[in-house]
Design a protein around this nucleic acid. Sequence first.
DNA 1: TTCACCATACTACCATACTAGTTGTATCAG
DNA 2: CTGATACAACTAGTATGGTAGTATGGTGAA
Lengths: 245, 245
Amino acid sequence: MNSTLQALWQDTRDSDSVRQRLHEVLRQSIIRMELAPGQALSEKELAETFSVSRQPVREAFIRLSEAGLVEVRPQRGTFVVKISQQAVLEARFVREAVEVAVAREAASRGLDRPVLAELRELIERQRRCIEPADHDRFFQLDEGFHRTLSLGIGQQAAWKVTEEVKAQLDRVRYLSVPESTPIDKLVEQHAAIIDAIEWRDAEAAAEAMHIHQSEILQSLPDLVRRFPEMFQPTQTPAFAEESQA
Amino acid sequence: MNSTLQALWQDTRDSDSVRQRLHEVLRQSIIRMELAPGQALSEKELAETFSVSRQPVREAFIRLSEAGLVEVRPQRGTFVVKISQQAVLEARFVREAVEVAVAREAASRGLDRPVLAELRELIERQRRCIEPADHDRFFQLDEGFHRTLSLGIGQQAAWKVTEEVKAQLDRVRYLSVPESTPIDKLVEQHAAIIDAIEWRDAEAAAEAMHIHQSEILQSLPDLVRRFPEMFQPTQTPAFAEESQA
DNA sequence: TTCACCATACTACCATACTAGTTGTATCAG
DNA sequence: CTGATACAACTAGTATGGTAGTATGGTGAA
């Protein structure tokens, strides 16, 4: 575990603050399921691993806890939160709401030519991830696609929100890699979204994005069955604590 | 200034951590424009004001900076961010996207009877704020209305996002109180939303929420003209720093 | 008068020290 | 053998000290 973290640490920029670098390293590790749901994270141990003090580690924890990726229990410890089916469904709801609005707006106001070109280019590169299957690369390009679309209509706050809730969803994707991620289908959905935007058909764009964002609903119940230990027993996250008493 | 902060500090719960209490106090003060946009906040001074150490103050600053309410400039200071027209429009976009989805969902799946009753009750109490005009009370009830609706369909994450972006919008409301806040109009919009939900008419509910969330667009340009010193010069927030050089 | 330079007084960031609360374990009484 | 209790070994939260970088105001030279 520590070796993987160390590697990610080296990749971060020296110019950023220790807090930001730690946040990024831990966030990535949690999303990629390298830090297992339920696992305890030790402030002290991580501080020693990276040769920094506890304080910036603690501050990174605080930020991660606000994103719902870890849970800080005072005087007890900090833990990677288990995936909760409820949390995933809620994150999906928010993401669909925001991204459908983005697609609709992009179609009705139109996208600048260079942005459209970049989106087409991203789709092309995604196609090249189908055979041979390159999931890591596709995930990157997928994120780039959605980011480019949101920023393309000048909605940075929308992208920030999407990025935040996406973390919950991406953990599920990493669970299901590679078997149940139909790259080819997802790429064509991207193409359909951009087609509708280019035709300036707002309703078609919204509908295409809706379909795209509904994809995860297919695999979720199956994953809960196959990886029960990764999931919080079904209930709302807010009441998760009481249940363990 | 300090006296107002002290008063809010007394209201916070002793059981919460110092960091959370400070965050809440500062957040409220910023939203209510008691801490002026552009004003410098001193870690040390605030620590002394509340008789706590600098560390929890610093952690509260970090959280506020993630919500876009303050800007932490290393080695320089921490400042209340000026309202940016761009940031307000982006926050509005996200809020409309999420809340329209909430309204649509509430209408299509239906609300439990007690939730509907609570919403109707909130609307009634809002009506009582019209004459004599009680803006503070109305703001509270308004927030309660939107929270109850989101939580009523079990979308806590949606409410969390709304709450976050709402901070940017509420600062504008406090600017325009009391003259340009048409309480009566807003209350009737709330009623229209709930009517549509009760009729289980998803499209009507979505449309009613859309109209409601578009209200702020009426007053914004006028406010920018009347309170230019409260606003960032028009441009995207991301490039705001460079402009000051 | 104007400009370059330097001393000073800030700032945020990180490290370290201390406090207080929780948990597991070992010990001892019954 | 069982159950209660005291203690030891953790934890996060808070306090305080040190460091490096930035802004500013004054001083002296041009």
